[in-house]
């Protein structure tokens, strides 16, 4: 089963060097173990834009972004036997944040990726 991990946080500060090192180590292990298929961190909100449809109209918001409650910081795609394994993996990943980025708060949401009709 394929899972996408999406990390969101209300804080926009970049990861500490310690956290970066630890995340790199974990990613390296997961890639070597054949479980992590893809991953990336995302640049700050200001480098992006939002294209929105509401009330039957299309609009583009190209910053500045105010009142953003949660920002997606990065994602990873895993191939794992099931949800329990995905949970264990996400737990380990978030423990790194707890250990190496004091004061940070955020959510790692894990979602099964839809596969074809078979």
């Amino acid at each position: 089963m394929r899972f996408m991990f999406i990390v969101t946080s209300p804080q926009q500060q970049p990861p500490t060097p310690e956290l970066l090192v630890e995340m790199h180590k974990l990613a390296d292990r997961e890639i070597k173990a054949g479980r992590m298929l893809d991953n990336a961190g995302l640049m700050p909100l200001a480098t992006g834009a939002q294209v929105r449809v509401s009330d039957g109209k299309l609009s583009v918001v190209d910053g500045p972004f105010v009142e953003t409650k949660e920002v997606i910081g990065g994602y990873a795609i895993f191939e794992l036997p099931g949800k329990e394994e995905a949970l264990a993996s996400a737990r380990e990943f978030m423990q790194l944040h707890l250990d190496h980025m004091p004061g940070w708060g955020g959510v790692c949401e894990l979602r099964a990726i839809a596969s074809g009709p078979s």
Binding site: I31, K32, A33, G34, R35, E79, P81
Partner: peptide
């Protein structure tokens, strides 16, 4: 399908090491 996934994973492990 799980056999396929395990083989793929083994292949990725070998490629990494």
């Amino acid at each position: 399908p799980q056999l396929c996934n395990e083989a793929l994973r083994l292949g990725r492990v070998l490629a990494a090491v």
